[in-house]
Design a protein around this nucleic acid. Sequence first.
RNA 1: GGUCCGCUAGCUCAGCUGGAUAGAGCAACGCCCUUCUAAGGCGAAGGUCUCAGGUUCGAAUCCUGAGCGGAUCACCA
Length: 633
Amino acid sequence: MEEKIKAVLVEYSNLLFATEISQDLIQFQATRKDVEGDLTLLVFPFVKLMRCSPVEAGEKIANFIIEKIPEIKKCAVINGFLNIVFSDDYWFNQLKEIHQNEHFGFSKKDSKPMVMVEYSSPNTNKPLHLGHLRNIFLGHSVAEILKANGHEVIKTQVINDRGIHICKSMLAWEKFSPLNKNGERETPSNTNLKGDKLVGKYYVEFDKRYNAEAKEIISLWEKGNFEGFSSTISENYKKFQAALTGKDEKAQLAIHDKIKDLAKNETSLFREAKDMLIKWEARDPQTYLLWTTMNNWVYAGFDVTYKKMGVSFDKLYYESETFLLGKDQVIEGLKSGVFFKKEDGSVWIDLTSEGLDEKLVLRSDGTAVYMTQDIGTAIDRFNDYKHLSGMVYTVGNEQDYHFKVLFLILQKLGYSWAKNCFHLSYGMVDLPSGKMKSREGTVVDADDLMAEVVEKATELTKERGHLDGLSESDRNLLYERIGMGGLKYYLLKVDPKKRMLFNPEESVDLTGNTGPFIQYAHARICSLLKKGAVGKSMDILPFELQAEEKELVKCLALYPSIIDEAAENYSPALLANYLYELVKQFGHFYQTIPILIEVNQEAKLGRLILSTNVAKVIKSGLNLLGIEAPEKM
RNA sequence: GGUCCGCUAGCUCAGCUGGAUAGAGCAACGCCCUUCUAAGGCGAAGGUCUCAGGUUCGAAUCCUGAGCGGAUCACCA
């Protein structure tokens, strides 16, 4: 409709405005709720052209479009706003179209370029936590939204399965795991622990012992005992000590951290972990066996977690297989002058002309860093998928700088797809007590949290749900869906870019702007339809729409543009907020307009069909958020 | 210190490319289940959009500066 009005105004611009006008002058906005109208045209831009008051200008335009466009019933000019009312037929036809379109809101499948969406990408040394939940739900939902928007989508992750941090948990397990009566160390099967939890336990164990050892070393240093340490160590220590005087508390803390790092590097545990990494890189069979064994425990654990989350991946990348990939690229780039070599042999890129710094891409010993690997992985992916046009990296905003550099490097290396790489940068999740810190044990475990929300949903659903006729397993499924729906919605309704607060109490809430509230509307409609005996295939007959019904159709009609917008902005939050708006509108309609007891059969059928379509959009939208829509609750 | 991000009701958040009287939820208050699921609906209350300048018919939105909070600036990932 907007397009139609635009076209008319442009076509007859000479007549109306005595000059050609550009499309940009024609601006629409939604009509205020307390004013009659379905669409509002801003008159201000034309006032100068027409050399008259906003009211006169508006009236001129109004008379004109009423004459030219039959779907416009009437217009009213208030201040500089031209409020346009569409005919009843128009809205009825909108509803009819929505009703007949089974994939309403979705673009044609695979009509847009293929994109890869990366999310999760965990380390294999500890279990998933609340931060991962935001990442995973976000990435999964964005992938679904892009699909709905017509893209072919490949879901992926790169699993950080190697490196010093992995060796730490391996070493700790080997050194510190107690033996049971059969002489075995702890395993998932003999402890009944999830694999990721068991490995995580040893990572923590390593950290504990490691810190304790570092502390001992520092106390030696404090006494001036540097026996067995190199002279550079004692010099550095003294330098840090000297720097402490006259600094504020925050700066002092930072210096203490540096001293601690210095000591940590001197611990025997760290040396052993480093030795293990060297052995691993040399593919020492025993180390490799330990590594595969422990990683497999973790994968088994992650699988359980992912299943509960309801997410999946089409293709997995492992860091152990990709970490060397970027080296050749760096050597190529060195030849072509994109990179430069320093005296010590390390390779860098100079981004100072872009307002950034110099960045290391290869260590002096020739080994790869994170950046090297990411360059290689990106190129590898585009080789794996010949039709791939772009990539979305779901990674926290603490890595904004990294991705800025990565994309610049890829561009400089001459890859045209680099401009289609997007860092879906999301904000951290805070707790009411502040930041999550593993050191302070304030990290919220993903499995625990999911179990908690489901338990809470179970309790509340038993209190107030409509469970008759549901089997035990159906009930459990329902509790699961409500609990998880609440959690997902809670994490997705906030603009991804923004840091957010996770309030445990609010996350299990069922009232207000929550997942269960939206699910509830769906269940209500399903119950209504069952009683009204309306099938999806039923034809709609003309009936006179009430104001509440028109509002609801108006809201439904927005769905396609919401999907477009959510895809364009990589923002499930836009979709979540839309669904909430739709459900509120439905609640209003449901409360004011009789449906099943309506005597006028056309109106009754029309309202039932309207409700069917609201349910259709709710279900479709929730699914794009990764949330199930129960038919009964 | 350089760079980047944020600041909207007591709390958590919406507010699209500048547009009418800045909106929701939670919390607190009042009302509505002999009509379809009260996990609901309705009403009232709650604001110097951090501050100061600027751009213009018009600024929460754009620009400049300040304040506060956060992230990042590793031969870590």
